[in-house]
Write a protein that binds this DNA or RNA. Structure first.
Lengths: 176, 176
DNA sequence: ATGGAATTTTAACCTCGGTTAACGCCCCCC
DNA sequence: GGGGGGCGTTAACCGAGGTTAAAATTCCAT
């Protein structure tokens, strides 16, 4: 079975506006979401109210909270639309269950997970080995279109900085 | 087919001493390794010679460089034994190939990848949201046995600090 | 046991980015 | 058109951790 077929048969379409939550940190949400269009952010909020952006999610991406869906706990992060967004929702359990019985779907799942693991490995590399300034430079190189879609605030919190810090770095690089 | 069976039929056992490399950064190595016993570190070396430790690998872990094995490039990091180590080596291509035709193996692979993704997600969380001191505290909590097996130097480079910085943090926490 | 190397600690100085606060800008809504 | 709130920038001050160097300690290997 193809993944798109599974979405048709067991998925559910959703349309959300800018600013709407898909799920919140601390809730239980055992679904996975395929992004048809729009833009979202996945983010942590610390005890003292600070926000940290885990990732931006763009069309074609596949997202859900594994600690909730796979382990059965609560969501470690929240998911919010930064623009009007169309999603296909599917219970993780259905995807997991079908992949146990269907080689094509299992293979699709494996490829997706390999890509996810490589993406996270790269982010690990950037936090481990690069300075904040170097992380910003790398992002400008690798995802220039993203810079036009998200605010400076969100960009900073994705890079592990404050907006003030990012503004300073930009001045250092671009302006004299 | 069970994974252990695949290892028996297509894997190859290796015994390495402390200080030996499994593969080096920049090489091509398309194998994956199952760790029977021992301890290893996976690490990056920057252009100016600084070392950054990506992860420690312990018995039961499964490790290989995806960018080399899956994408066909060169290894983004190196892998070195910190203690005498026994490994089972298997070409990634064989594991991937069999998982396309064998549901049990595919399922094993999916579970491993989900666990890997969650592990990397947690490390991302720690770099994104925690200070160096908080990362050290979290490690003391979650992996106390590791602290006895690796040097302070390697621990620091795993936490994204210098040995000097880690020593200072320890004094701040433990000693007055 | 002993000499040498690696590891860990300490100290002095410095840099980067956090914090707070003020200011200007833009957008949007009333 | 006017007011308010989010966003981006700037400035002043501060603190965590980097860098360098030297001393103290531990670990081995001969």
């Amino acid at each position: 079975m193809e993944f798109s077929e599974l979405l048709r048969s067991e998925g559910q379409s959703m349309t959300l506006g800018k600013g709407e939550h898909v799920f919140r940190q601390g809730e239980g949400d055992k679904s996975f979401y395929y992004v048809r269009s729009g833009l979202l952010k996945a983010f942590y909020v610390s005890d003292d109210g600070k926000e940290f952006i885990k990732s931006f999610i763009v069309p074609g991406d596949f997202i859900g909270c594994m600690t909730s869906a796979y382990l059965g706990g609560t969501c470690a992060f929240g998911l919010l639309c930064l623009a009007p967004t169309q999603l296909d929702r599917i219970p993780f359990e259905r995807l997991y269950w079908h992949s146990r019985a269907d080689l094509e779907l299992a293979h699709f799942f494996i490829d997706r997970l390999l890509q996810l693991a490589m993406k996270k490995e790269r982010r690990e590399y950037e936090f481990l080995c690069l300075s904040a300034e170097a992380r910003y430079r790398a992002l400008v190189e690798s995802a220039p279109t993203l810079l036009e879609q998200v605010t400076q605030n969100d960009l900073a919190r994705y890079l592990g900085l404050t907006p003030v810090g990012l503004s300073r770095i930009k001045r250092r690089i671009h302006g004299g």
